[in-house]
Design a protein around this nucleic acid. Structure first.
Lengths: 203, 203
DNA sequence: ATTTTTTTTAACCAAGTGGTTAAATATTAT
DNA sequence: ATAATATTTAACCACTTGGTTAAAAAAAAT
């Protein structure tokens, strides 16, 4: 395996991520990806047969990166409140590094929902979910938290973690006009966890 | 003004909404919009000069529909908890009718952020926001709710209302596999409002 | 009735797109 | 050194796309 070879492939992937994230599959141009990578257009097809092939590669990585925190949360065997804190921190650290991820994934899934099915070998997901639902129900019966639909709670947690990044282009112009949004998002993880726990905890 | 004329224009707009929402600006095809509307491609250019012209029309309507509830919430002079309930209900009723809206707007804003600036005459937004921030701060000082950054609270509310629709394509395959997501989302408005209030209310 | 507007049809164009190819050159591995 | 691989260049192709046009037909307004 050549050294230059893998280096070039990395350049391509990095550039493809950037362009696809901003323009989407339909809006991205192969020439733009090549320019962004500082290499020739022919090389794109040399390593990745087609635009779709390149996209598939990038998209798969994005989905995994976005869903791994949830899977980890669901599988985590800590105490419930600690699980929630872990997920919030994990999500915020991942999304601070890749703020484009949620928008990119959501949008492309919306464009072609069947694409997601191709990567549902992210299994263990369903079982882990059932496990967490159980755990939440136990917490309710033990009087640790108030009564709430476990799926509702999970959706609330994910919403609070992910949406601020999805909506950043909007909020930074409307809600946070003139302020440093990144700075505001920085320590949000713990505040969000507190917000959730405050809502469900029985004192 | 002809009767048939406006009817056709409505057909076009309805079709354009549908196609743009699913495929985005770059992914949408004029021919597909024409087919969807059941009319000829030439008519699209007859009434709306260009693809961009047609998109602008549809997009502007979408942004307004998406932001009006927030603006209304911010301007609402009811008591805080009632304001929150109003916003949740309002959002859920709008988004149940147009579930595609958030994803569409978020994505296109992400693609070309400058597009949003063109429609920032949705003013009164900033002033209304300041008004609500004040109101939240008063509620804190009066011991009605616990201490919280008002902008954080607003972002939380919007996150909980909007994200479930943005993520529907994902959640219905991962979190709610096999269940009726629309049914689950139906009565969520009040549950979400309760969730928020439970988190901030000082009993 | 006739004038004006709307709609269809269908061919057409220029530009941009993803993708290919072949030959020359540079790089790396043996 | 030599063979194998990686890279560049640049021309090229088939196809799709947004958009135009002109003429005929249909519908509506006067």
């Amino acid at each position: 395996m050549d050294k230059k070879s893998v280096e070039t492939q990395e350049l391509i992937i990095r550039a493809a991520k950037k362009v696809f994230a901003k323009k989407g599959l339909a809006g991205a141009r192969m020439q733009e990806i090549a320019d962004e990578a500082g290499i020739n257009k022919a090389m794109l097809h040399y390593y990745y047969r087609s635009k779709d092939g390149l996209f598939e590669h990038v998209f798969q990585e994005a989905v995994i990166k976005l869903l791994r925190p949830v899977a980890a949360f669901l599988a985590d065997d800590s105490e419930l409140f600690q699980k929630i804190r872990n997920l919030c921190r994990h999500y915020y650290s991942v999304l601070s590094e890749y703020p484009f991820l949620p928008n990119f994934v959501m949008n492309e899934v919306n464009m072609a929902p069947e694409r997601l099915l191709k990567m549902m070998e992210i299994e263990g997901f369903v079982e882990a979910k059932e496990n967490t639902v159980q755990k939440i129900n136990e917490a309710i019966q033990n009087g640790v938290i108030r009564s709430i639909d476990p799926r509702d709670l999970i959706l609330n947690i994910v919403s609070l973690c992910v949406f601020p990044f999805v909506s950043k282009p909007l909020t930074e112009k409307l809600l946070f006009a003139g302020e440093d949004v990144d700075e505001l998002l920085k320590n949000r993880a713990d505040r969000v966890a507190d917000f959730i726990i405050a809502s469900i905890k029985l004192k």
